[in-house]
Design a protein around this nucleic acid. Structure first.
Lengths: 192, 192
DNA sequence: GGTGCTATTGAACACTTGTTCAAGCTGCAT
DNA sequence: ATGCAGCTTGAACAAGTGTTCAATAGCACC
């Protein structure tokens, strides 16, 4: 039994981080306190401060984790043709995997934190820039005739609609408006 | 001096509410605590609990205030022709008055609160519905040939882009992407 | 067995938080 | 003046917060 009943019994640092994500998603930043995190992760209070120097460090780690997931959305996928990659990246936003309340809610709380704290704003701005560049690159691959400036313009316009989709999905607007918005992002991306 | 040096010395309840708005906008929900609100409003701690039974009540009042401002954006304006009203309502989002960080930030924190607390979610959902209906009505007036269902569909699509604009403006994307997004909302609204 | 190292625990501390309340203050009608 | 009602104050309390730390457990190596 030394390796745990699920194989996940170890690596408590990861468990703590996951617990913090879960709490942030469900109850917002005021739900993320050291004792609640410890309880959710099933560890003692002291261990949270053992792995994360600060509450601040813990939250920073949480934000980085969220950003990593998002940037992966526009990662190049060598297995597909360029325009297929772009289309897939655009449509993936409506996947059940990314349209979960948990994921959307995390993004929202991240934005709110970035708005309230300069430190978090930097983390967010950097991830946003990476996402924008990734998307512009996908567009550039799919439509080589476009200048790189034009690609960034289209990427920026798409991101506006995507951010709107994320938000609106959280507010519980009907699925069909999401689908139409995805079509809109494709129009912007593939316009002649 | 009984009526105050600025004429605003009185009506401390309003001052307290304003202080709470200011704090929520600048520091997020964790910046809104009774002592900070009292300090910002220039009153004693006890007075906050005198005018607002709870912290919860105070925040509810804050959220209602934010919602009121937003719903006004799509209020009918009898002084203009129908299509002018619609155009003005759509373009008003880019006004300096509404594109301030304070206003955008408040909206964002409202959404985050709604996500974390069922009670706040209801307030937000109700205001959202009012905004959507208002916008659909403006569209219906400007384009009488559309069915009311079609008006709501267009309103929903516009709201997605507008929410995206709000968010993206907060993240500091360039002004031009906002202008293009406004044009996009006009296209949706006035499409044949 | 002993030694050293990391991982883990929970009590303890100082501080902040929301809420209550007795006390005082104000303006006004009597 | 007197009384009264509503406004205003800040001290006090209980509960919750982040952080620290001495103590312990586990485990590899000698």
């Amino acid at each position: 039994m030394k390796s745990g009943q699920q194989g996940e019994q170890i690596d408590r640092q990861a468990r703590i981080l996951e617990a913090a994500l879960e709490l942030l998603s469900r109850h917002g930043i005021s739900g993320v306190n050291m004792r609640a995190v410890a309880r959710e992760a099933g560890v003692a209070l002291g261990l949270v401060n053992y792995y994360f120097e600060d509450k601040m460090s813990l939250i920073r780690a949480v934000l980085h984790q969220i950003d990593e997931r998002d940037v992966k959305l526009v990662a190049p996928d060598p297995a597909s043709p360029p325009d297929g990659q772009l289309q897939k990246a655009l449509r993936r936003l409506a996947d059940p995997e990314f349209l979960t309340t948990e994921h959307l809610s995390l993004r929202l709380h991240l934005w709110a934190l970035a708005q309230a704290h300069e430190d978090f704003a930097l983390i967010n701005a950097e991830a946003f820039e990476r996402y924008l560049s990734g998307l512009a690159a996908l567009i550039g691959n799919a439509k080589p005739e476009l200048s790189s400036d034009e690609c960034r313009v289209r990427a920026a316009d798409i991101v506006v609609v995507q951010n709107g989709m994320w938000l609106t999905a959280l507010l519980g607007v009907d699925e069909s408006s999401i689908q139409r918005s995805i079509a809109r992002t494709e129009e912007i991306a593939f316009a002649a």
